[in-house]
Design a protein around this nucleic acid. Structure first.
Ligand SMILES: [Mn+2]
Ligand SMILES: [Mn+2]
Ligand SMILES: [Zn+2]
Ligand SMILES: [Zn+2]
Lengths: 138, 138
DNA sequence: AATTATAGTGCAATGGAAGTGCATTAACTT
DNA sequence: AAGTTAATGCACTTCCATTGCACTATAATT
């Protein structure tokens, strides 16, 4: 059994052929990807299957969903050690308005946010929009 | 001429009957509203008109659009003194997972965010999800 | 190994919200 | 009043997310 299948089993996801391939595909990326992106990489697989694969991954803490403000959900593998299922990994995300790519800035954690009395925080989403390092040419 | 129309003119928006009414409606709210919410308040007006009214308001800095992570755009009047057209008013937003309401926490500005080298920030969106003061009962 | 149960996949269809084209109507200008 | 420009209403489109159901593969049981 290969490494990926072990990881899937570890997260209580049965390693089907499709799932292994999708995981591989995600592991290749250095940006967060939309479902459509995955779809393009697997012309033979059905969109629904990919959709449900990613949803399963999300539920089991293998990927996290990213709302980058474009209206299209992006997904990225969770870092090793990230316990998404239990506690969110509150790093920030960056969306480039030039190349339209979205990246996880895993090292940049979201600062503690103070809220008015009576408000209870459960989750925080912080997205910075601007020009990424590839596009700023510096 | 009434107060609302003055405000609209001040922002270079011609105060039509429809626009004045939409502004009034927005002023009544204490939460951010979706287009559908506005639609419900104006059963006689067409969705498109309301849509374009809100878009115009947004372009002219009368309202700001809020992406609260639900996938449905919300809108709220800008605070007096907010110069949205020129510079974003970077306050945080709170979305209640219980009552599904989204509020502007105008007093809570988004802290300065540090980015990796080469990244240039243009805009920041910070949304906290959790339980609002109405729902937490405290 | 054959049978049964369970989980995954593919296809078709739906839903919700955002957005556009165009004809009509209202508002402003001269 | 006539002409011009902007706003409105209706119909239609697009895009992505999501679901129902039949079919197939995988796992468990006999
Ligand atoms: Mn991330
Ligand atoms: Mn706001
Ligand atoms: Zn870029
Ligand atoms: Zn609430």
């Amino acid at each position: 059994m290969n490494e990926i299948d072990k990881k899937l089993l570890d997260k209580e996801v049965r390693p089907t052929a499709m799932r292994t391939l999708v995981y591989q595909q995600l592991a290749k990326q250095n940006t967060a990807v939309a479902l459509t992106d995955i779809e393009l990489a697997f012309t033979k697989a059905d969109r629904t299957t990919l959709y449900r694969t990613v949803k399963t991954f999300e539920e089991k803490g293998i990927v996290h969903q990213i709302d980058d403000g474009t209206g299209i959900s992006k997904y990225a593998l969770c870092e090793p050690g990230c316990n998404c299922e239990i506690e969110n990994d509150l790093h920030l995300h960056f969306h480039c308005s030039n190349c339209d790519k979205t990246v996880c800035l895993t090292e940049h954690k979201i600062p503690q946010i103070s809220l008015p009395d009576g408000y209870v925080a459960e989750d925080v989403n912080l997205v910075v929009k601007g020009i990424c390092s590839d596009c700023s040419g510096s």
